[in-house]
Design a protein around this nucleic acid. Sequence first.
DNA 1: TATGAATGAGGCTTCATTCAT
DNA 2: CATGAATGAAGCCTCATTCAT
Lengths: 226, 226, 226, 226
Amino acid sequence: MTSEKAENDSGELPDIVDPGMVGVQPQTQRGQRTRAALIAAARHVFERDGYVDSRLVDIAAEAGCAIGSFYTWFDGKDEVLAAVLLEAQHEMLHPGTGRFAQSEDPVEIIRAANRAYLDAYGRNARLNALLDQVAAVDERFRRMRRTRADAFVERNARAIRDLQERGLADRGVDPYLASLALSGMVSRLAQSFHIFGLGGSVEDVVDTATRLWTNALGLTTPDVTP
Amino acid sequence: MTSEKAENDSGELPDIVDPGMVGVQPQTQRGQRTRAALIAAARHVFERDGYVDSRLVDIAAEAGCAIGSFYTWFDGKDEVLAAVLLEAQHEMLHPGTGRFAQSEDPVEIIRAANRAYLDAYGRNARLNALLDQVAAVDERFRRMRRTRADAFVERNARAIRDLQERGLADRGVDPYLASLALSGMVSRLAQSFHIFGLGGSVEDVVDTATRLWTNALGLTTPDVTP
Amino acid sequence: MTSEKAENDSGELPDIVDPGMVGVQPQTQRGQRTRAALIAAARHVFERDGYVDSRLVDIAAEAGCAIGSFYTWFDGKDEVLAAVLLEAQHEMLHPGTGRFAQSEDPVEIIRAANRAYLDAYGRNARLNALLDQVAAVDERFRRMRRTRADAFVERNARAIRDLQERGLADRGVDPYLASLALSGMVSRLAQSFHIFGLGGSVEDVVDTATRLWTNALGLTTPDVTP
Amino acid sequence: MTSEKAENDSGELPDIVDPGMVGVQPQTQRGQRTRAALIAAARHVFERDGYVDSRLVDIAAEAGCAIGSFYTWFDGKDEVLAAVLLEAQHEMLHPGTGRFAQSEDPVEIIRAANRAYLDAYGRNARLNALLDQVAAVDERFRRMRRTRADAFVERNARAIRDLQERGLADRGVDPYLASLALSGMVSRLAQSFHIFGLGGSVEDVVDTATRLWTNALGLTTPDVTP
DNA sequence: TATGAATGAGGCTTCATTCAT
DNA sequence: CATGAATGAAGCCTCATTCAT
């Protein structure tokens, strides 16, 4: 487990953004409003123009306040971005598999997790693309993305190890490496689907991902009869 | 060859960079030298500072020529980058699976392809990271990366379809989607290994990738005996 | 007393800071406290950061009050500075030579005055440096410093004239010019000693200053025997 | 001797400004001209507006070039100032006592030195004031001023020691401290005269300075007859 | 009185691009 | 072809000051 905060018993994933990184906290309602407006405006502008090409002037204008007010709450572009990501991280980290988790069938659990991941990715598609962009440019956000990815990889690695121990999954693969590979596979599919505009239905993608995942682990028997 | 997906008979992958994008061709030896020095310098500076944070001034300095000379050969930063990528694209597109391709065993062919991909990725790791970075910022390079990725996906999709038709691979998955997923999986592993510094040996990664890939397609029988 | 050179009968030196320049006088105890805290904080911040580089925000923070409260009491940075100097001016103007003044020996009187000056300068060294800094930037404080310097020059000029009239000091020099020169000399020594960190003991400096001063006026006989 | 470069045999004072501090050296005549124009313009603007209140825009405008060109040659305001001072330092360090130096009479030598100092100070009065201002704000220039002052103090200290050894000057004072005091005295007079607008003629000031200086060292016999 | 958020003019700085030699 | 100086639009950021609560 490389993430900073240990995962709790309920299977929650740890937070990613260091809250100390996100600027000053307002002490009045008015400040609250302005700061929130700035974060919303920043998300909008970032998603529209990209991080690199965005301008603080536009963010302030979109938030309906002066540029100086921006600096009342944030130290710069990177700090609002951190705040934007902090706001979005709950949604992005907890895809909400809960509703399907009651099933006993590992395959169904995996299918549910994949569908949840794809959905959550879609709801924050532009923000995910943004994080990719900014991670390519700024070390701090690269770490942030890495931490987020690790959270999923670790969780899935545990699940795989569990299946292996129960004699359900192929013991010929290292659970961590396998998780890294398969989690990456799903993440890539999500990217292709939601960002690059891969055609087809979500269900097809979920099905394929699940089939490959379970085949790979030996949970299902591939149909290879000629 | 500028078409995105065409492939010639010899099994070659298509070129990615539009040659019309890479600047002026020198008429003299002196020009030849300057232009080549600029490309080498650009690659060096890009890999060191990243595309966004690099400065033409540094590239010219590294190449040992004046900034004016840069504009003799290229129209701007993006054009040198295109030239840099053009120079590297052969290496990046043709990992050189040839030596193992003679084997009849599909598993060995896949293993060889995975190893070749990982090696090639490693030899151009920083350039790959660079392409990721720049793709996040510039549409044209996004397309370029996409084209490159597509080349692999298409090739692998054909291979999968072939295996399915020969009754060797699981018919339950769409060959294109499966290729997209599995190619992405290997690409992610390469990224983790060469860029993010995942521990372990290349062989472990190759083994895991191959095992998962072949399991997923039903080419191998996973070991799940309790 | 705002006149520049007037001196009252008791031999006191005139006040330097125009009381009309130092802001609003509080009507309540609470106001009293806040205002005093601001002055103390301002002195602290000014001495730490210098006048030019200091920020009102820091002064307010140091005083433990909001920036708005600052403007309740002062109109700006210059006004607090004036208040700071007003608080310190008594100490700076009246070095307290009294204890030695009873001596009849002119040399001893001069020595006592020099020692008193040096001591007083030291007790307010940082504030003196601050006044120098601010005088270089703001005409009003330049005048203030000038007035303060003049007070000493005038007093010493009278003393020199007195010694000349009593046949004890060299009549070949203009008393005012001589006072300007010798007062400046001692002031510079104080600066060197307390601000620039000249080595040596205070006594050495006092001795040298006194010897040179009295030699220069012919009060003592220099030792020049080979 | 605390200055960086040792004084040469001919009695020259060492340079003060570190030439490595003054920006880029032009490689063409055109660059030469622009850079020189910027230095001249900077001196003009600094002397008119003071260092703190001066704006780079004004300097560039005065030099007749774009603001970007300023940054071609200097890294910022401080660097031009260093260049300005470097240009002026020869004049300020070598007042040119030569014409009177042939006299054997120590008193006449001192008088000549004082007159030369006062003249040189006057020719660069505004620059001296500027240096004072900036020294109050920036450590680097404080050191520069200090070095310059030290050069004079050291030179005069040597002269005093020499006179003492020849049995001409009061042995009761430490030569370095005495030089510090007397050099400071003359410097203060120059300041009063040229910057603060002290009335009277230069000759009067020179006479007083010389009389006090020589009295102080015992080179002359003060007139104290009642 | 005290608070703390809002304001915005104005300075600084960067660097891709142009151009005269 | 090469050179290197000139250009200036465009962002960033600061902080004294104002103002509503």
